[in-house]
């Protein structure tokens, strides 16, 4: 069969998610954000939840998430997404409210809002992109930056005696009774993409079922910030990020 004969609608097995619009995403080539945006779009569509979905966008690279996924969005101030989501969800309990945050937003400036929303067991889902660096402002140290990792503000590598340790905030959140599901995923291979999608789906379902706060950390690459090619970034992530941030469920307690 010729490719033209195969490319018929009845044979289509994968295409751009319906909720992801045609606006070209501003992310750098190879950025993990794009893959996660696709997954969020697919999950909301598959759940038939676009009419109840409210996303809360962060400050950071994903600040324009609302430009790409055709649902209702609120753009929060830096770090405040969990508080904004709390307000939206408490007043609209039937809605699917989720935040989409990076490591600086969630684990540095927004630590208090993150921990307290999770500790109250707010029925929201938190999508947490951990690429160990501040992408949007040009590659500075994040709370999750690895020891020895070179960034714009740790040009000789992160020194724990000066800058403290990489913050495993998902482990911390998993300790809180308010969280029902805390998982760490990645999107660097087809298999990991499928698993990350299932995790996002579970988190969204938890939110609607009222089980408490769900956190899906996606260990991600920032090839511009890391100054590597996208493919090389994936290798570096597997070699250096995964030992510090191992993939898998940290907590799965949705039967409460």
């Amino acid at each position: 069969m010729k490719p033209e004969d195969i490319k018929r609608s009845e044979n289509k097995v994968y295409c751009k998610p319906e909720l992801l619009n045609d606006t070209p995403m501003h992310y750098c080539p190879g950025c993990s954000h794009g893959v996660v945006h696709k997954l969020v779009s697919e999950v909301i569509k598959e759940m038939g939840a676009e009419h109840i979905a409210i996303g809360v966008a962060p400050v950071g690279c994903a600040v324009f998430a609302y430009s790409y996924i055709d649902i209702d969005w609120i753009e929060a101030a830096h770090g405040r997404a969990p508080a904004v989501a709390t307000g939206a969800k408490r007043l609209n309990p039937s809605r699917l409210v989720f935040t989409y945050q990076g490591d600086g937003d969630l684990a540095a400036i927004g630590t208090a809002e993150t921990i307290h929303a999770a500790n109250r067991g707010e029925n929201i889902a938190i999508i947490f992109i951990n690429n160990a660096i501040y992408g949007m402002t040009g590659g500075q140290m994040a709370p999750t930056t690895l020891e020895g990792q070179v960034t714009a503000t740790t040009p000789y590598g992160r020194r724990v005696d000066l800058n403290g340790y990489p913050l495993k905030i998902s482990n911390l959140l998993a300790q809180l009774p308010g969280t029902c599901y805390v998982t760490r995923q990645a999107v660097h291979t087809p298999a990991s993409v499928r698993k990350a999608k299932a995790a996002i789906r579970k988190a969204f379902e938890n939110s609607l079922a009222g089980h408490g706060t769900s956190v899906v950390e996606i260990v991600s690459t920032c090839n511009s910030g890391w100054k590597m090619s996208p493919a090389k970034s994936n290798e570096w992530m597997v070699e250096h990020m995964f030992p510090e941030y191992p993939l898998g469920d940290l907590k799965n307690d949705t039967e409460r």
Partner: peptide, 29 residues
């Protein structure tokens, strides 16, 4: 597609594509 005849329609390329550029078709002969 440098070697289109080798495609098995597994969608691996599309799954990891951050920009949703790839549509995948598959038939079972």
């Amino acid at each position: 597609t440098a070697n289109p005849e080798k495609c098995i329609g597994c969608a691996s390329c599309a799954l990891v594509c951050p920009d949703a550029c790839i549509e995948v078709y598959r038939v079972v002969e």
